[in-house]
Amino acid sequence: MDRIEDIANFLLRNEIKLATAESCTAGLIVSELARVPGSGAAIDCGLAVYSPQAKNRFLNVAYELIDEHGLTSEAVADAMVLGAIENNDANAAIANTGIAGPAAGPNGLEPGTVCLAWAVRRGDRIHRFTETRYFEGERNEVRHGAAHYGLQRLVFYFDEVFSGHNPTAA
């Protein structure tokens, strides 16, 4: 499922209320969803959280975690997605942090490197997943690719959680 309209309809059919915590994509996930008429019913909030201070203030991401793993890390993306789902009225969340470019990031991370995380609430359990991906292209192509990939994988992880499989959670 890769068309935004199909993803929005999936969210609506499954009564998914989404929160996002977006660093690299700066709100593009929510913006892309909002293009679809009626999709607002599937959106709780979209947070653009670039700075460590914003990640700490709005998502409770510990500075020690950022210092230990770096801003572009699965550990930080995981903490961001947990803050997004726990601090909002959502049953699913997507978070990302990365290097959109044009320059390389700390520790030589290549532009296009994006760490993503997803959370799906089922009952009183939150299932979390993380991935690091590389997206080709210029800055905005990286952001666009990461936003669409984040939405596509949310559908995948939602299906994993509710299909009866025992998914590996973060």
Rank of each mutant, 00 (worst) to 15 (best):
V142W: 03
E136I: 09
Y149M: 00
E110Q: 11
E136D: 15
N107R: 14
D89T: 11
F135V: 04
G98M: 02
A75Q: 12
S31H: 10
P106Q: 06
R125N: 15
G123Y: 07
E136P: 10
A100D: 02
V142E: 03
I29L: 07
S39C: 14
H148M: 13
E141N: 02
L65G: 04
P111I: 05
R122F: 15
V114W: 07
I16A: 08
L65M: 06
G83Q: 12
R122Y: 14
R133W: 01
H69I: 00
A103K: 12
T72Q: 01
S73T: 00
P52K: 02
S23V: 02
G112Q: 06
P37W: 02
L71T: 00
R143H: 01
V120F: 10
L28N: 12
T113H: 01
A95K: 08
A34G: 09
D124F: 14
G145S: 06
R35K: 14
A34T: 15
P102L: 11
R143Q: 11
L151A: 08
A92D: 11
L59E: 01
P102F: 05
A84W: 09
D78G: 03
V61M: 01
H127G: 14
E22G: 03
V155F: 00
Y50N: 07
P106N: 09
A93P: 07
N87E: 11
G137N: 00
L71G: 00
F58S: 11
A103R: 14
I66R: 10
Q152S: 11
H127P: 11
V49W: 04
K17Y: 08
G70W: 07
E141Y: 08
R133T: 00
R122I: 10
T132P: 10
L82T: 13
I99K: 01
H69F: 13
G70E: 01
T20R: 04
E86S: 14
L59A: 11
A117K: 13
G101K: 12
T97A: 15
T130W: 03
Q53R: 14
R143D: 07
G105W: 00
V49R: 04
V161M: 01
I85R: 03
T113F: 05
N107A: 13
P52W: 08
E141W: 08
V161P: 10
R143G: 02
